[in-house]
């Protein structure tokens, strides 16, 4: 397969970027999207040109490092996969593929397709934990959790923090990310003690980081590589209401 790539190139945080065209030639349909970019980069290296920078690491869809906006879709056209899991067989031979970094005021571009997602770190730091010092935990079986709750908490906890939700949202709102964490702890007895303060602080931090407001378009759910449901956003909203008024 052969493709024409239109890729966003930007030297650093402050410089102005632009799209540059590259040719990806002799691509196997079984290649992952990142392996296709590897091939393009190999050609660039041979010409002593600076490689196209993109974040990646585990290449099995769990570390959350990769994340490209491909042909207008976060992580490309397939549902439930990260960019590194996306295979080239899902593209039509000979077409043009446009690749952009996540766009959000809260995710400034570092270089080319790499963005700074430390805003997510600050959201977790604001309350995405149960305050339990090492050594102070009670015996594990003393905290029973109904299976249904544990399962749903796990659904939420599967979030890999890739940022696709905020990148795909027309308002650049990371509510799916935030709500997944709030929802996980809201479903578990361990999270009970801090539930009021957690949701309020995390929402406050999200607002301070310059993300937009959720308007329930549910694009995040469609683009989430871990298929996390917007039901968690509803639960988070409820947690917020409860924290403010009950």
């Amino acid at each position: 397969m052969n493709f024409t790539l239109k890729i966003w190139r930007q030297q650093n945080r402050t410089s102005k970027g632009k799209f540059i065209e590259y040719q990806a030639i002799n691509i196997s349909p079984d290649m992952s999207f990142l392996e296709m970019l590897d091939a393009v980069n190999r050609d660039l290296t041979k010409k002593s040109e600076d490689n196209i920078a993109f974040d990646h690491d585990c290449r099995e869809g769990i570390c959350g490092s990769c994340g490209l906006f491909i042909n207008g879709r976060a992580h490309g056209p397939q549902r439930g996969v990260t960019t590194c899991e996306l295979r080239m067989r899902h593209f039509v031979d000979g077409t043009t593929i446009t690749v952009e970094p996540w766009r959000s005021r809260a995710f400034p571009v570092i270089k080319d397709l790499v963005v700074d997602r430390t805003a997510f770190e600050r959201i977790i730091q604001a309350g995405g934990y149960v305050s339990v010092d090492t050594g102070s935990a009670p015996e594990a079986s003393s905290i029973p959790v109904p299976k249904a709750n544990a399962d749903e908490a796990m659904d939420a906890a599967a979030c890999i923090g890739c940022g696709a939700c905020a990148a795909a949202c027309k308002n650049s709102s990371p509510m799916l990310f935030l709500s997944a964490k709030v929802s996980q702890f809201a479903l578990l007895p361990q999270g009970n003690a801090e539930r009021r303060i957690r949701v309020q602080q995390m929402v406050k931090q999200m607002d301070e980081d310059g993300f937009g407001l959720c308007s329930n378009t549910y694009a995040c759910e469609v683009e989430c590589p871990k298929k996390i449901s917007v039901v968690h956003i509803a639960r988070m909203n409820r947690e917020f209401l409860r924290a403010k008024f009950l």
Binding site: T134, G135, A137, A140, S141, P144, Q184
Partner: peptide, 23 residues
């Protein structure tokens, strides 16, 4: 190793559970 499980459960790690709510 037993303390690790205690610690992780207290942190809210959603380990697989039985219907009775135990691990």
């Amino acid at each position: 190793s037993g303390n690790i499980i205690d610690q992780c459960v207290a942190q809210g790690v959603p380990f697989g559970r039985e219907y009775g709510g135990l691990l």
